[in-house]
Design a protein around this nucleic acid. Structure first.
Length: 674
DNA sequence: CTAGGGTTAG
């Protein structure tokens, strides 16, 4: 029925210049009556605030207005505007429909027309319409117009204030928004839960300096607490989200725990908080708790996206599959972000084939993110050429690439050592796709060149940057220095890194690594002291493996693991066998100045080797052993795993922080380039 | 009559 509604004869009448359309309508018998049209329009509401005086015209006014509203709902703005009659007058509802249609369809050119029309008809002081207008201009990102509407509305209801506050917060105008918030206080308008939500969002907008953002959130939080809004579900949820986005998991937790009442959104916000802040296990546990304890909170698409993200973080393929089944059962697979999250989950859980099948199944319903997910999927497996093919298919399909597309495809080139292709893509990003390179893109290029050993070329890229190089750029350079043992450039990178992110322990460790490899032990201990003096410590290596839907994790020194002795024995046996075949332990990765034997012992305790041994013992012969590690794979573990894959005739798939290593028959898919 | 949670990269 709705489909036929775009074809009724009366709507097909083409519009001559300034025609008496109204006449046309009343003279040609309509296929669909006004009444029918109104009924189709689900949110039909009765007019009106300004009823015409005579009963005779009432029908006409109402009918015209209904028709305009219906047209708006269908997005036929042009025709709706043509219908705006001089007499009888449009009502508040009519304008509301028109403004909403402009906002919703992002119809920039029509907005001001409606606005002027409404002013001409004396609605310029209507606070309700002002609210909608502010929303509309905010959608068009014309903040000046939004502010203008605000200024000219004399009777400022709280809605009007909140609308402008929201507009400023959405536009990342933190200072302006917070100023408005204070202004509200001065004007004696008591904030409501909307006000607080928007003000909190505005604080996040100032996250160019995260500690400033945090201070602001805390200040508003205090305000909220004092005015008794902390347990208001919307406000509390926003607080949880704000602290989560700034990385303060404990603060989110505290607000969440104190909530008197929760709904799906609050649960989802907390789950997302864990998923985003590297606490995937907590995310899954909270999801379980929600399912068990709160039967009124039915997980929706948004919830599932975070849950899938958590599965991806853990590389929990078994869990991920269960969640996928649930998604299908609930019909949530019609929601594109959910499907995108599925693609990413399968790719990160070591099931690239399934990721591709899901992607393939989207056929025609893909958005940029779907493409990006698939590209980065191929990238982390080292399939650079395939990633480029997908990128090209994306362009052919008419989807315009986003900045993230290039981070993904350049990353893929980098993992695969495709220097020439990477350079070409970087060029095309700027020239053909008009994307200004950001720090991340330079970081990709530095990584691409640096990994390939072209360190000076990489350094020149940094020198040629027209924006301030972010920590990722220097980090890439440092990483390359680690691979190729370049002390001077590493020191240069660290000067900047220690200043830009003094609390990132990884940088200190990398530098110490580089010194250790050059046997510069004094420098090693100097860096270690610096690390400790800042209250930091080396992130311990950790590896985990999923066996029969349960997770087993390993760290190098672990007296709690009942199988430890067995694991060590197995490894010792394997290593002995490997030494006979020419394996030489790569002790340069040990950061201490110890004797050879001691170093070898430390090497054997690396968590990844333990996980491999555990996998060998506890999984069936035909299965692929899938292991995940929180750091980069060390050279020694890499060569040992190659040996094991051959001796034990087992495929081993290891995901480290950056990418996958697929070991088979003594060879790794990265071809020792990583 | 407005509002709170989400997808891709590093």
């Amino acid at each position: 029925m709705f489909a036929s509604c775009s074809h009724p004869a009366l709507l097909q009448v083409s519009l001559p210049p300034k025609p008496p359309q109204l006449q046309l309508y009343s003279h040609s018998p309509p296929l669909l009556s006004f009444k029918t049209l109104s009924c189709i329009n689900s949110s039909f509401q009765a007019p009106s605030q300004y009823p015409p005086s005579t009963t005779n015209t009432t029908t006409t006014t109402t009918s015209y207005n209904h028709l305009i509203q219906s047209l708006c709902k269908q997005g036929n703005l042009k025709q709706a505007l043509h219908l705006l009659p001089q007499e009888p007058k449009p009502t508040q509802r009519t304008y509301e429909a028109l403004i909403l249609a402009c906002t919703h369809r992002n119809a920039r050119p029509y907005g001001p027309i409606v606005h002027h029309h409404l002013i001409d008809n004396g609605f310029d002081q209507d606070p309700f319409l002002s609210t909608k207008l502010i929303d509309m201009y905010s959608q068009f990102s014309s903040l000046d117009d939004a502010r203008d509407v605000f200024d000219k509305t004399h009777v400022k209801t709280i809605f009007v204030w909140n609308a402008l506050l929201k507009a400023l917060a959405l536009a990342d105008e933190a200072e302006e928004a917070l100023f408005l918030f204070q202004e509200m206080g001065r004007a004696g308008v008591p904030p409501d839960s909307f006000t607080y939500s928007h003000a909190l969002k505005a604080c996040i907008a100032s996250s160019s300096h995260p500690s400033l953002a945090f201070d602001r959130v805390r200040q508003i939080h205090g305000h909220i607490f004092r005015h008794g809004f902390e347990s208001t579900i919307y406000v509390a949820t926003t607080l949880v989200d704000c602290y989560a986005k700034l990385g303060y998991v404990l603060y989110s937790q505290r607000v969440f725990d104190r909530m008197l009442e929760r709904n799906v959104v609050s649960w989802s916000a907390m789950i997302a908080c864990y998923a985003k802040n590297e606490r995937p296990l907590d995310a899954l546990e909270l999801f379980r708790e929600m399912m068990l304890r709160d039967h009124d909170a039915i997980p929706n698409a948004v919830t599932m996206v975070s849950v899938l993200q958590a599965c991806a973080g853990l590389a929990a393929l078994g869990q991920g599959r269960l969640i996928h089944a649930y998604v299908l059962r609930r019909g949530l697979d019609s929601i594109i972000p959910v499907v995108n999250a599925l693609i990413a989950m399968y790719a990160k859980c070591g099931s690239l084939g399934t990721a591709y099948r899901v992607f393939d199944g989207m056929n025609g319903r893909r958005d940029v993110v779907s493409w990006n997910s698939m590209i980065s999927g191929y990238g982390i497996y080292g399939f650079g050429v395939k990633a480029i093919r997908v990128f090209e298919a994306m362009i052919r399909s008419g989807t315009s690439p986003s900045p993230i597309t290039f981070v993904s495809v350049l990353g893929a080139c980098s993992h695969a050592g495709l220097v020439k292709e990477g350079k070409r893509l970087f060029e095309s990003m700027v020239r053909e796709h008009g994307i200004t390179p950001r720090s991340e893109h330079y970081a990709c290029m530095v990584d691409l060149l640096g990994r390939a050993g072209r360190l000076h070329e990489a350094a020149r890229i940094i020198e040629g940057m027209r924006i301030e190089p972010g920590p990722t750029v220097w980090g890439s350079l440092l990483g390359a220095c680690r691979i190729h043992g370049h002390i001077e450039l590493a020191e240069r990178a660290c000067v900047r890194l220690f200043e830009l992110e003094p609390m990132n322990a990884g940088n200190y460790v990398l530098l110490a690594d580089i010194y250790a490899e050059a046997k510069m032990w004094e420098e090693v201990s100097r860096v270690k002291k610096l690390l400790e003096s800042r209250g930091l410590q080396k992130v311990p290596g950790c590896s985990w493996i999923e066996v029969k839907k349960k997770m087993y994790s390993f760290v190098s020194v672990d007296e709690m693991n009942p199988q430890m002795e067995q694991l060590h024995a197995l490894l010792a046996r394997l290593v002995k066998e490997m030494k006979d075949k020419g394996y030489v332990p790569d002790t340069k990765v040990v950061l201490y100045d110890l004797d050879q034997e001691e170093k070898e012992r430390i090497l054997l305790g690396h968590s990844e080797k333990l996980a491999v041994a555990f996998g060998l013992i506890n999984s069936g012969g035909g299965e692929v052993i899938r292991i995940t590690k929180n750091l980069r794979l060390c050279e020694d573990c890499h060569s040992v795993t190659k040996f094991i894959s051959k001796f034990a005739k087992r495929e081993i798939l290891v995901r480290d922080v950056n990418r996958f290593h697929h070991f088979k028959d003594g060879v790794c898919s990265c071809l020792d380039y990583w």
